[in-house]
Design a binder for these strands. Structure first.
Length: 291
DNA sequence: TTATATCAGGGGTTCTGTAA
DNA sequence: TTACAGAACCCCTGATATAA
C-alpha cells in the first residue's frame, strides 16, 4: 500500500459515514412550541462541539477498516491535518475534517493552508454535513460527506482571491527558526483600501510585472513584490478569507446544492432553513410534525 | 514561582449592503 | 429574491515571553 491507496480507501470509508449518529450528546425534545422556536435559532451553536466529536468519530471509524500492519489513524488536536496515518508510509497521508451545519447561513469552515504543503497530494479534505436527527433536536447525525484533495481547495482559493492590486494573497513567512508556537503555516488575504488615484498607480506597478504578473505564485520573488505593494498602499486583513463557501470550488458547490436539496422529514433543507429564518413562523405545522 | 500577556492557531456564526 | 462580499462576532487551545 502506498499513501495514495490509503487515501482512496479512507475516502470510501468516509463516505460510508453518511447516516451515522454521534451517540454522545443529545438535544432533548422541546416541551413546547415556543421552546422549539427558541431551539431552532440556537441549535447551530452546537456546531463547534459537534465538529470536534465528529473529528473523533471519524478517526475511530477509519481505524475499524482493515489496515493490516501498515499503520493506523491518529487524531491531532491541535495540529494539521486533524487525522494522520501513522506508520511507515511516506509522505504520511492525512485527512483534514471540516464540519458544516447546513441550516447556518453559509459553510463557515476556512481553509488557509499554503498550497506548498500539498505538492504530493498527501492530504485530503473531508466536509461532513450534520444535523440533529429531528432538525432541531435529537442526536447529531452525519447527513452527507464530501471528499477531495487539499491541493484542489488551495488551488481554487488562490485562483479565486488573488487579483492584484485589489486583493493579495500572502504565504506564511519563513518562520522555521522560531519556536513552535511562533511558526506560521497559513496564508492570508489583504484587500486594497486606498482611493481611486492610488489604485491606478498600483495597477501600473502590477502591469510592470509582466504577462504573468497577476497570476498567483507562492514563490519568494513573487511574494516579495506583493509585500512591496502592501507596504506602499493601505490594505486591510480580510477576516473572511478562505471560507470554503466562497472560494468557488466546483466540488464544494455541487455538494452544497446536493445537501440543500436533500429532503429530510418531508422538506428540503433549503425549505427548513427558510422556515427557521421566518419571523412569523407561518409554517409552524412543519415543526409540529416533528414533535 | 506564578500569573498574565502575546501570538499562532483551532472550531465556528450572524448581520448588512449591494449587485445580479 | 438571492448570491456574494464585507465586517464583525463567539468560543476555544497551546507554547512561549514577560511581569509580578
Amino acid at each position: 500500500m502506498n499513501y495514495q491507496d490509503i487515501l482512496t480507501k479512507a475516502s470510501k470509508g468516509l463516505k460510508n459515514l453518511k447516516g451515522n449518529v454521534i451517540d454522545v450528546v443529545e438535544v432533548k425534545k422541546p416541551p413546547t412550541l415556543d421552546y422549539a422556536r427558541h431551539l431552532a435559532k440556537i441549535v447551530s451553536k452546537l456546531s463547534p462541539l459537534v465538529g470536534n466529536m465528529i473529528e473523533y468519530h471519524v478517526c475511530v471509524e477509519l481505524n475499524k477498516l482493515d489496515w493490516g500492519e501498515v499503520g493506523s489513524w491518529k487524531r491531532q488536536d491541535p495540529g494539521f491535518p486533524d487525522t494522520v496515518f501513522e506508520g511507515n508510509i511516506n509522505p504520511a497521508p492525512g485527512i483534514e475534517i471540516k464540519t458544516w451545519f447546513p441550516l447556518a447561513t453559509e459553510i463557515t469552515a476556512r481553509f488557509k493552508d499554503s498550497i506548498n504543503h500539498f505538492k504530493q497530494n498527501q492530504t485530503y479534505v473531508a466536509l461532513l454535513a450534520w444535523l440533529p436527527e429531528f432538525i432541531i433536536y435529537g442526536k447529531p447525525k452525519i447527513i452527507d460527506v464530501w471528499v477531495d484533495t487539499a491541493w484542489s481547495l488551495a488551488k481554487a482559493r488562490d485562483a479565486h482571491y488573488h487579483r492584484p492590486p485589489d486583493y493579495l494573497i500572502f504565504e506564511p513567512e519563513n518562520t522555521s527558526e522560531r519556536a513552535a508556537n511562533l511558526q506560521q503555516s497559513n496564508t492570508n488575504g489583504y484587500k486594497f483600501q486606498g482611493d481611486a488615484k492610488a489604485f491606478q498607480e498600483a495597477e501600473k506597478i502590477v502591469a510592470a510585472w509582466g504577462k504573468e504578473g497577476k497570476r498567483y505564485s507562492p514563490s519568494r520573488s513573487y511574494q516579495k513584490k506583493l509585500r512591496q505593494l502592501r507596504g506602499k498602499y493601505p490594505y486591510r486583513l480580510d477576516t473572511n478569507y478562505a471560507k470554503i463557501d466562497r472560494i468557488g470550488h466546483q466540488g464544494v458547490e455541487n455538494f452544497k446544492t446536493h445537501v440543500l436539496d436533500s429532503v429530510i422529514h418531508q422538506h428540503s433543507l433549503r425549505e427548513w432553513s427558510k422556515l427557521i429564518k421566518d419571523e412569523e413562523w407561518k409554517t409552524m405545522d412543519w415543526i409540529k410534525n416533528l414533535m
